[in-house]
């Protein structure tokens, strides 16, 4: 929550990270990313589909491919595979990256927050929540 103010100020001043600024980013921090992930929890969960698809197994998965989830045609028709690069592009501006996506969200505008969020999603994919249920 306390990271919101710097992000807002950067946005207001037109200081969106890019070019040389992007090089100054630190490695993604899963713990910080978990806090960013709280923004996703109205629609997403790790282990099950909700308004949005589940996130377990996200890295390495082809976009629009979770069984049983009703994707937009736009998402289904992409040839993307989710990796840090494609996720960064999508999360920055979902509606611009995949016009017609059902994810009506402005995006995570702060590049460091995106990096942290992707690190969390990567780590969460190996967590207990994402392991198959025991018989």
């Amino acid at each position: 929550m306390t990271t919101a103010l710097p992000a807002l100020l950067a946005l207001a001043l037109g200081l969106a990270a890019g070019g040389a600024a992007a090089d100054a980013l630190r490695a993604g921090d899963p713990k910080a990313g978990e806090a960013v992930y709280a923004r996703c929890l109205a629609c997403h969960a790790l282990a099950y589909n909700r308004t949005g698809p589940k996130h377990c197994g996200l890295l390495g998965r082809r976009a629009g491919s979770v069984p049983g989830f009703n994707y937009s045609k736009a998402m289904q028709s992409t040839k993307w595979v989710w990796n840090p690069k494609t996720l960064d592009r999508f999360l920055a501006n979902p509606l611009k990256a995949v016009p017609g996506t059902s994810m009506g969200y402005d995006g995570v505008k702060d590049a460091q927050e995106r990096r942290d969020l992707i690190a969390y999603l990567e780590q969460a994919g190996h967590s207990e929540a994402c392991k198959p249920p025991r018989e």
Binding site: A38, R39, A42, L95, G104, D106
Partner: peptide
């Protein structure tokens, strides 16, 4: 509370689009 906080973020992300 987790769902409601997520809802705030979701609407916050929807307003500009």
């Amino acid at each position: 509370a987790m769902l409601e906080k997520g809802a705030v973020s979701a609407y916050l992300g929807a307003v500009p689009v």
